[in-house]
Design a protein around this nucleic acid. Structure first.
Ligand code: SF4
Ligand code: SF4
Lengths: 143, 143
DNA sequence: CATAATTCAGATATTTTTGTCTGATTAAAA
DNA sequence: TTTTAATCAGACAAAAATATCTGAATTATG
């Protein structure tokens, strides 16, 4: 069960974090990413392909090709990845699944949830993937 | 797209809120619930059936039968409904989909997310469905 | 008692998400 | 130049979530 992101998005985030733990420009094959992260190879490959479209990842074909990160890790926000894969609807929808109410007469959840959602958004908007470097290295080694 | 709950759970919450807007003990047919809330009839019926098992809803068969709320709205927490339908895993899983790390060396998200998650849990644990009465009445009428 | 309206259980169907396969293209290196 | 190892595109498959159907059991009411 995922929390708020789709599996695609979780895998995308994991893969980007993994790529960011490599030296800049180093190409990593879908095979390696998949086996290190326990993600189906073709699936992660598809996901990274789509992230090349968003200029988050980049790739090189052919022998000794692979995926790498398209810009400096400090320039990639977690939110960028989420936006590219799941979109931002989650930050806009009613947590109870109701069509939007006007803010004039909010239910008891509305403001509380609104606050949480805003915090979550800010969190993803503030955290760039370079900040995960140390943790990611440890994590990968422990899988 | 749902936010953090499954559609089943969203519908369940909506249905329980709807039932709570009726006078205590009044039986409401799946048909009425479905058409008022724009939910597939058989689906909401299934969901309420399952909630009778958790002693949140109750039902009466036969002519002029239907569903009703099993206890006083002030005794039903939103969390109870979530627990009965989706379970509580969402409050336990890593938001990035990683297997759990030890708390010794958390990534930058860990504590921030942990805090948000805790707030969300408390919110659902604090809010009882009686607190939604006024809003629910308005809401239903505006659908 | 017959009828109508309902829940209920279980099977089935549809849709969405997740995962896999195939073959084409690319490029390094033998 | 051939072989090898990779991405890529698009079709395909499997699983999970969502939705529908069918018929049996129940119960109020005429
Ligand atoms: S007021 Fe409540 S029901 Fe309406 S959109 Fe906000 S959270 Fe959802
Ligand atoms: S430390 Fe980070 S990656 Fe690990 S469980 Fe916590 S949030 Fe997930």
């Amino acid at each position: 069960m995922t929390v708020i992101f789709s599996k695609k998005c979780e895998y995308g985030l994991q893969a980007i974090l993994f790529l960011s733990s490599k030296t800049r420009g180093e190409r990593v094959s879908a095979d390696e990413i998949a086996s290190k992260l326990n993600i189906p190879k073709e699936f992660v490959s598809k996901i990274l392909q789509s992230l090349t479209g968003s200029n988050i990842a980049a790739s090189k074909k052919g022998k000794s090709g692979g995926f790498y990160i398209a810009k400096d890790p400090s320039q990639i926000k977690l939110l960028d990845v989420v936006k590219a894969i799941d979109g931002l609807d989650v930050f806009d929808n009613c947590v109870l699944g109701f069509p939007h109410c006007s803010k004039d007469n909010p239910c008891p959840l509305h403001n509380k949830w609104g606050k949480l959602r805003e915090d979550a958004y800010n969190m993803l908007n503030d955290e760039t993937i370079d900040k995960f470097y140390e943790k990611t290295v440890n994590k990968i080694n422990s899988l």
